[in-house]
Structure formats: C-alpha cells, structure tokens
C-alpha cells in the first residue's frame, strides 16, 4: 500500500522556445527514496525548482498531500513540508556551522521575527542543532565558519540545513556533485541513513549511476523535459531506452 505524497499534472515550464519541463506527470510516493536521473538539460533541476517554488510553472498543477500548491509562495510550501538542498552549495558562509543549522530551526519554530532574545541562549534550538550536526558527522566543526569546511563537509551541511526544517519531502539536488568519487559513498551513506531513520521522503537528483542504483528505491529518468521511464533500480538497469540514452551503453547481459 503506497500513498501519493506529491504529484505533478501536465507541468510545463519553458525558457523561450526551450520547453525545459514539458507536460510532466511526476509522482512521489510517501516514504520512498526516489532518484531523479537524466543527462544535463533533461529538466531535473527545473522540475525541482518548480516544485520547491523557486520558479513558477507556465501550466499544469502541483499537488502536495492532496492540496494544490502550484501558486503558493516558497514560504507556504516550506510550511507545508517541502524542503530542498542545492546543486551548488548554498550556505551562510560567514555564520558558524552550528548557526547555519540553528537558523533553520529558528525559522521552523517561527522564532526568526524575535528581535529581543539572544539566539545563543536558546538551549532548545542549540541542542537540536547539535543533534543534527552529530547525525551528519559535523559536530566537531560546529563553531567554525561554514566557509572553512571542506567541499564534502559543505555538501553534508547543505543537506543538514534543509533537513533541519523537518520536511515531509526533501529534494536533494546532486548531494555528491563536486566531490571526489571516493567521498561520494560516505556522503550518501550519511544522508540516506538520516532520511530513512526519520522517515523522510526524499528525491535525489544524481548523475552517478552506481550511487543511484545502490541507494534508491525507485528511479525516474528524464530526457529533454519529459519522463523517459520510471521503475525499480532493476527495471531501469534493464531498460534499453534508458541505458542507451542516459548511460550510453547497452544493458548488461
């Protein structure tokens, strides 16, 4: 028994003549870890930008938990439970690692309009931030400015900041891009274990097919703004259309 958490219907976004997302029906089931794959320019990030509210759709609808969120602001979507990380690391570089996470928690708890309390004295938030950093293996870096982290740590913190919103649906846009091959699996180990432990539905955009096959429950392949195929990792691995278009080699025998 699966329930649909998020659904897009005939979603369209065009940049000039280029239909980056072309009438896409995209579905995320509650509890799954879904990989969104496709070559550069396939429309993956545009799709996530539309769902998270960074871009407004030209046509079509986005339904989250049965509610139409197509015209909602970023803020409203976050409150509904949609969070995201970014492909290019997007952190608050001059804030400490702990404050990067703490800020998210303040925002989630509706405390960011408070001008009259000392943020560092809020032990509830500080404890939760420390807990999040421990989960992501960043506890020892808590007092350091985010700019001082290594690339791998920055990728983890980027996910941790989004995770601290305690979303129902978390979009991770290439959580392992820009790090060495050796670092990819450790990052995905941490991210997927946190996501599964907390029963967060996650959509991961990823290029590395080894990572995709190893960590995801289901895969959606996009090509030129449309969904090319979807299914379990095994089905996708055997799908000739996917392997020739995206991986560039025939399916394994």
């Amino acid at each position: 028994m699966t329930t649909v958490l998020l659904e897009t219907r005939r979603l369209v976004k065009a940049f000039g003549a280029n239909r980056a997302v072309d009438a896409v029906d995209f579905t995320v089931q509650a509890g799954e870890l879904l990989a969104l794959i496709g070559s550069n320019g396939a429309g993956k990030t545009t799709l996530v930008n539309l769902i998270s509210g960074l871009l407004q759709a030209d046509a079509g609808t986005i339904v989250f938990e049965g509610r139409d969120v197509t015209r909602q602001s970023i803020h409203e979507r976050i409150e509904a439970g949609i969070a995201r990380s970014f492909q290019l690391v997007n952190l608050f570089d001059q804030l400490t690692v702990a404050d990067n996470v703490a800020l998210t928690i303040f925002a989630r708890q509706g405390k960011t309009p408070h001008l009259w309390t000392v943020a560092a004295r809020d032990t509830v938030v500080a404890d939760e931030a420390a807990q999040v950093l421990r989960q992501f293996g960043l506890a020892s870096k808590a007092g350091m400015p985010a700019a001082g982290l290594s690339q791998g740590e920055r990728k983890l913190l980027d996910v941790a900041v989004a995770y601290a919103l305690k979303p129902k649906l978390l979009f991770l846009d290439e959580p392992t891009s820009g790090v060495s091959t050796r670092e990819k699996a450790p990052i995905m180990d941490v991210v997927t274990s946190v996501v599964r432990q907390e029963h967060i539905t996650a959509v991961v955009i990823e290029h590395d097919m080894d990572i995709v096959f190893r960590y995801s429950d289901r895969i959606v392949a996009m090509h030129q703004g449309a969904i090319l195929a979807q299914g379990s990792p095994d089905e996708i691995r055997r799908n000739e259309q996917v392997t020739t278009t995206l991986i560039g080699s025939p399916p394994p025998a």
């Binding site: 960074l54 803020h75 608050f92 800020l103 303040f106 925002a107 309390t117 560092a120 809020d122």
Partner: peptide, 23 residues
C-alpha cells in the same frame, strides 16, 4: 544577536537559501 539578527546575516550571506529555510 537575536534570531532575527541571525536571519539578517543569513540574508546577507545567501538570499536564496535564506528564502528556502523559511526566512
């Protein structure tokens, strides 16, 4: 030093991300 002040610094550092953590 308030949560609001932290939010301002977050806006200074990264406006887009600040919007996406709910500021």
């Amino acid at each position: 030093h308030s949560p609001f002040g932290k939010a301002l610094q977050a806006i200074r550092d990264n406006e887009t991300r600040a919007e996406f953590v709910g500021v």
